[in-house]
């Protein structure tokens, strides 16, 4: 259970990224966070585990006030919050297994992590997760040898290795092709259901969000302008979130996405990376 109360963030440049954001997410619910770029989606997610320091407001994880914690307690709290990143953010030169096990770093001593001697329970869990995301055979490969979809699966396994009580997901599909995007979204939602895990998924693809999540929060210029079921997301509401014109453009883009199956501009880069390995 996550509760966000009156969260504000003002950057040193004076930009107000978040203005008084409040909502709560009960266990097992997957929330899609949508909004135009610059609306503060990324900031909001990072304020929850304080990768970005919020200026004001409170974040409660179950009954723990995350915003009031000191350095060490914050580390303890971060262990309980799994995060999945845009562009995967795997440590590319470490093996898949090391990446997954890095989810246990908050639980083991520096010496254990330095010598890579993790407790057998952690290793069992890592193997089980790799099995769950379908990558058992890749455990000893280097992370940069995998394709985009596979890397994101490792990212998911790393987050789950933490045994999180909350999942923060930042644009999980931004660098993936439409088909892989759907697979990844399905995997995340299935796992959340299996574990009764609350999740916030920051996502730019409205149609994709609608077809998978339980609830949608629309953010515009740092304010919540919509909070409700995916079905309630009418054209009207979307225009309110994205602005009249942008929404029309976005919808057209999405239509062409579906038709030619490869409209993501980042994809060629990623493919090249895979070829290089």
């Amino acid at each position: 259970m996550l509760r966000v109360e009156n969260l504000r963030k003002r950057y040193r440049t004076g930009d107000e990224a978040l203005k008084n954001v409040s909502f709560s997410v009960p266990a097992g619910e997957v929330v899609g966070l949508i909004g135009p770029s610059g609306a503060g989606k990324s900031t909001l997610i990072r304020c929850i585990n304080r990768l970005v320091e919020p200026t004001d407001g409170n974040v409660f994880l179950n009954d723990l006030n995350v915003t009031r914690l000191g350095r060490n307690d914050l580390k303890q709290a971060r262990r309980r919050i799994g995060m999945i990143f845009q562009e995967y953010a795997l440590v590319e030169r470490l093996s898949v297994m090391e990446n997954v096990l890095s989810g246990r770093l908050g639980y083991v001593s520096f010496w254990q992590s330095f010598t890579r001697r993790f407790p057998q329970a952690d290793i069992d869990k890592a193997f089980a997760l790799l099995d769950r995301v379908g990558l058992t055979d890749h455990a000893d490969k280097r992370a940069d040898a995998l394709s985009g979809g596979q890397r994101q699966r490792v990212g998911i396994a790393r987050a789950l290795e933490q045994d999180p009580e909350l999942l923060l997901v930042d644009e999980p599909t931004a660098s993936l092709d439409p088909k892989t995007s759907r697979q990844i979204m399905r995997l995340i939602c299935e796992i959340c259901a299996e574990r009764n895990l609350p999740a916030i998924i920051n996502i730019h693809d409205v149609v994709l969000a609608q077809s998978f999540v339980d609830r949608i929060i629309g953010l515009r210029a740092g304010e919540v302008v919509f909070d409700g079921a995916p079905d309630a997301l009418t054209e009207d509401v979307l225009s309110r979130i994205y602005g009249e014109e942008d929404w029309a453009v976005l919808r057209r883009q999405h239509d062409s996405d579906e038709s030619d199956d490869a409209a993501d501009p980042k994809k060629p880069v990623e493919e090249r990376l895979v070829e290089l390995v």
Binding site: R78, E87, R93, G106, S113, F114
Partner: peptide, 28 residues
Amino acid sequence: DTTQVEAINATGASGLQTLDYGIVPQIL
């Protein structure tokens, strides 16, 4: 690449662990 470091940080790793897992593999 700072996002790799950020990701390790987000797991609740300590400073030394972040160095070991996030920074060292990249510069080795």
